[in-house]
Write a protein that binds this DNA or RNA. Structure first.
Length: 585
RNA sequence: GCGCCCGUAGCUCAGCGGAUAGAGCAAUUGACUACGGAUCAAUAGGUCGGGGGUUCAAAUCCCUCCGGGCGCACCA
């Protein structure tokens, strides 16, 4: 289910602040040809060709005729492979079809050349004016440029991190903090109504182990079996002791356990919230698992599933028949000892989210939890919902920490964990977030702290940020030289590096949309790097500020628009990644 | 044994079935009396893990084998 690509309206200046604009310039601006418009035109042309051939079976959408930007500049500004795709089902020669379509495209205003190449590629070149008009349009759209309506009005819940409050967040969780937050920003840019949610697991045996570890540390006993070790445990103990209002030594073992549990979890949770905040990630909802158990949600969820006929009793336990929906085995929801199994919390939580009105729910998990996917999808079906629509599980592969080139084994129990704070302290928030978000979540990631710390250039975030800072520097110099964004003549943007830069700028909305569709924020990062490269090359070839006592011309003014448009897009792209766009570096 | 992810340049990684497979770093060589050299230009570097198949077209899709990571509870 893919929404049709929004065809953006041509942007006309409303005249404010442009009083001096000439009719000639107005005409040139109106020639702006965006890839979306070109695609829409292409679609109409292709449909016309199909009609003439009497083929009414091929129902096409704009997505079928998406234009690509050729890697080779000799292949024009945009190219389409639609003729080759359709030739077979039409039983015609792809080149003949391409030629026919090309004739139609040639008639579009702003298109300067159309060629049929190779087996049937249609290569399209734009007038400098038609391509260049984008620069002004971007500046006028500002932070809205790149936004789309893919998820307009759709309620989306993103659950990520959700680390147990039994210790600091280690690197695996941090990856999702960066990726999940970025995905939230991208969904918002596509019109989604997004809630970031943290499932606060404060119920169950992990917490008991944590509490026992605290008590043991307090009493000077060794770390219990299955307990947690490390410096942070004794730190928490000290803080609990310092903050306890009464007399701890008067408490029984059970009372101690409860006192340390309550205070320890509270402190740990506060720490986690704080370090996430320092990382630039703030959740809209911190959901306590305890609420589900204490509020009767678990019973209600199971009752609902029982009504639907998916619950049965066996061996003294209560089971959910997940195998009916593709799971490998049925799952126990109430254990034979009467306690709720872990999955019962998931059942209740999912139902709770649906009742809060979320149409699309995402859960982001580490690869060590990918075994849950089937049962959660089965659960979705059992509730009568659609798996992969109402609930989607995103799996992120592991993050390895490299030290001297070899992976370090992290153990919470042994206390040898690298945590969020360590990473941020070593490389800073921007570099840390960028390093975690620039790769596909499907790939395992190696983070080499030494390398990141030692040579800042190893992280392309600086390349991108520098490009942004440079746009600002150029703008400052332009202002000092009397170059202003008054006149704009897009036809002057005819240098090779300018058409390349404009082509990259034009792609941004599609990159955002694709990142949203595929749930892959790393595409935005890669795009930002590509844009930064195109900008640096342009900067090297095209001056915005006149040299010496040369007069300021419309060329300088027009280039300032392009410079500022690039700055806008770099800022927007970095913003989607949660990375700052500095004015100076 | 079954399932998920990965295997692309020396390293870290991109690459929606399309044209000569890319970027950053590392290496070599050039470019500041020109808007910031955290930059740019150029060179070198590849059996896209191996083998089959589908296709006009495969790094991309299918099968298989090899290698690596992670999972397969009345634990959470």
């Amino acid at each position: 289910m893919v929404d049709p690509l929004k065809v953006s309206e041509p942007i006309f200046a409303d005249g404010e602040g442009d009083a001096s604009r000439t009719r000639q310039q107005a005409r040139i601006e109106s020639m702006l040809v965006t890839p979306a418009e070109l695609s829409a035109n292409l679609l109409a042309i292709v449909e016309g060709a199909l009609e003439r051939r009497g083929d009414v079976t091929a129902a096409l959408t704009v997505d079928d005729v998406l234009l690509e930007r050729p890697k080779n500049r000799e292949h024009g500004d945009w190219s389409s492979n639609i003729a080759m795709k359709l030739a077979k089902q039409l039983g015609t020669n792809p080149r003949a079809l391409a030629t026919e379509i090309a004739d139609g495209i040639r008639a579009i205003e702003g298109v300067s050349a159309v060629d049929v190449a190779g087996p049937g590629f249609i290569n399209i070149s734009l007038d400098a004016a038609a391509a260049g008009a984008l620069a002004k349009s971007i500046v006028e759209q500002g932070e809205d440029y790149g936004h789309g309506d893919l998820y307009e009005g759709v309620t989306i819940n993103l659950e990520f991190v959700s680390a147990n409050p039994t210790g600091p967040i280690h690197l695996g969780g941090v990856r999702w903090a960066a990726v999940g937050d970025s995905l939230a920003r991208i969904f918002k840019a596509e019109g989604g109504i997004v809630t970031r949610e943290y499932y606060f697991n404060d119920h169950g045996t992990q917490i008991d182990r944590f509490a026992r570890s605290l008590v043991a540390s307090y009493l000077g006993e060794p770390t219990p079996e299955d307990g947690y070790g490390g410096q942070y445990i004794s730190d928490i103990v000290d803080r609990v002791v310092a903050g306890y209002p009464g007399d701890l030594s008067a408490l029984s073992r059970d009372e101690l356990q409860e006192a340390f549990r309550a205070a320890g979890v509270d402190l740990m949770f506060g720490d986690i919230k704080q370090s996430l905040h320092d990382f630039g990630v703030d959740f809209d909802v911190y959901f306590h698992e305890n609420l589900l158990h204490e509020g009767g949600d678990v019973e209600r969820a199971i009752a609902r599933l029982r009504d639907l006929g998916h619950i049965y009793e066996a061996d003294g336990a209560t089971w959910l028949r997940t195998t009916e929906f593709g799971d490998d085995k049925d799952r126990v929801v109430i254990k034979s000892d009467g306690d709720a199994a872990y999955i019962s919390g998931d059942l209740a939580y999912y139902l709770n989210k649906r009742e809060r009105g979320f149409e699309r729910n995402f859960i982001m998990l580490g690869a060590d939890h990918h075994g849950y996917v089937k049962r959660l999808m089965a659960m979705t079906s059992a509730f009568g919902d659609v798996p992969r629509v109402n609930l989607e599980i995103l799996i992120g592969q592991m993050v390895n920490l490299l030290k001297d080139g070899t992976p370090q084994r992290m153990s919470k129990r042994a206390g040898t964990v690298v945590v969020l704070e360590d990473l941020v302290e070593a490389v800073g928030v921007d570099a840390a977030r960028y390093a975690l978000v620039r790769s596909s979540s499907d790939s395992q990631l190696d983070v080499d702290l030494d390398l990141l710390t030692r040579r800042t250039n190893d992280n392309p975030v600086f390349y991108v940020q520098y490009a942004h800072a440079r746009t600002r520097s150029v703008a400052r110099n332009a202002a000092a030289s009397g170059v202003e964004r008054t006149a704009f003549d897009a036809s002057l943007l005819d240098h090779d590096t300018e058409s390349e830069l404009l082509g990259v700028l034009a792609e941004f909305p599609r990159v955002v949309r694709q990142a949203a569709e595929l749930r892959e924020p790393h595409r935005v990062a890669r795009y930002a790097e590509e844009l930064a490269g195109a900008y640096h090359r342009w900067y090297d070839n095209c001056r915005v500020t006149p040299l010496g006592d040369e007069p300021v011309t419309d060329l300088h003014r027009t280039r300032l628009w392009l410079n500022d448009a690039t700055g806008t897009v770099l800022r927007n792209a970095l913003g989607l990644l949660g990375v700052s766009a500095p004015e100076r570096m």
